[in-house]
Nucleic acid binder design. Structure first.
Lengths: 216, 216
DNA sequence: AATTGTGAAACACTTCACAGCC
DNA sequence: GGCTGTGAAGTGTTTCACAATT
């Protein structure tokens, strides 16, 4: 029982398992092996078994994993079973796209508020969510019990936004701004920097003389 | 000289160094130590030195790194010095946002084409780039010398799009669709799955009884 | 004196291989 | 017989610590 510390990489794979489990369940298959999950996720079966074992023994030896049971347990582990509310800060191109994108796809992670500092945008709607002013952030986050946030504002504004979010009770942030956010407050920050993704991708484009591609 | 194989994680840090170097350079500082880079990037100074050493000895002992020189070298290593062209496939919310986002920010990674399969969108413009039909993908990619692509289409369409891209000569893909893409062709794929990011983020939201947060 | 570049040690994560259980 | 759960081995990445260099 006394669990080992769980690698962040393992946590990041859980939603992938969850998605596949739900696909499998939708096909009325109620038991699945780690080998089958491996085939459908691209991860190795050992890794899947090890990841799941961090959280408990959910399988049956000789049989496999009950899809319904495992899917429910993973939802619980991730905290998705009760529904999670997210605030989006920044209603520019990216913030709007992220809000729309998620509203359409995931009822278990619900966009519960959108904020912007630009008064021209305030009061307008993204799907059916009204854009609120930053001044109301604390109140709305607290009132609606929002615990996660997406930062989609320009770099220079990001740090201040992060502070406001944490002060309002946000515990986990998905940061799309290029600014590194390290407050000495207890908040989990996951950074996704699109410029950096694109720039590092460029490394893998051959151009003849620049480099010797890894091993091959 | 005979270089060790370079970890992907190290490559992904290079653009961060590049950004900070350019900030430092903009402030007319022309030498910077690994300790200072560490302070400004959040990575450790040893890691920075090791990352840079994978590609050569760019520093001067007792002094530090010449900002201009190192910035130029990193641009070359990443292949950004000549400008890199990217195609965006999928002109929905996300594709449009990504195209706009990048056009505004990064002249060194240039959005050179946008594709969609919806004839209602074709011919319309995102900033000053016309949306082209999928049918023209191969020709345009080849003509304009585009080597990288962003996939921003729904999951089910992603695999076919990826195949078309690779056939057209694309060597590196940033995939925002939930589909895993593994063609047995020589292409580098970086996946960013926003649903998965949000769902795994939820794990780090405490809710009292669900779990014991890692070590602390 | 200061700071890089780098082997060696430590740590983290993945894969192997098989005992345990259905 | 088949498949999970898991210690042990292997691999990859980070940190340490210091010799080399200016």
């Amino acid at each position: 029982m006394a669990r080992p510390r769980i690698p962040e990489v393992a946590v990041r794979r859980l939603p992938v398992y969850l998605r596949v489990l739900n696909e499998v369940r939708a096909a009325d298959v109620d038991v699945v092996s780690s080998a089958e999950l491996a085939r459908r996720t691209g991860f190795s079966s050992e890794q899947i078994r090890k990841d799941l074992a961090y959280f408990g023994a959910f399988g049956t030896r000789g049989v496999g994993y009950d899809t319904g049971l495992l899917s429910d347990r993973l939802s619980q582990i991730l905290g998705l079973d009760k529904g999670v509310k997210v605030a989006v800060v920044g209603a520019g191109n990216l913030g709007t796209a992220l809000a729309r994108y998620n509203i359409q796809r995931h009822p278990d992670v619900q966009i519960a508020a959108v904020f912007d500092s630009d008064w021209d945008k305030i009061g307008k709607k993204i799907e059916d969510i009204e854009i609120s002013p930053m001044e109301d952030l604390r109140e709305i986050v607290s009132e609606r019990g929002i615990k996660m946030a997406i930062i989609a504002v320009p770099g220079p504004a990001a740090r201040k936004v992060a502070e406001q979010l944490v002060d309002a009770g946000i515990e986990a942030i998905l940061n799309f701004s290029p600014a590194k956010i390290d407050l000495d407050k207890p908040v989990f920050v996951q950074n996704i920097d699109l410029s950096i993704e694109l720039q590092s991708l460029a490394y893998y484009v051959s151009d003849g003389n620049r480099r010797n591609r890894n091993g091959s």
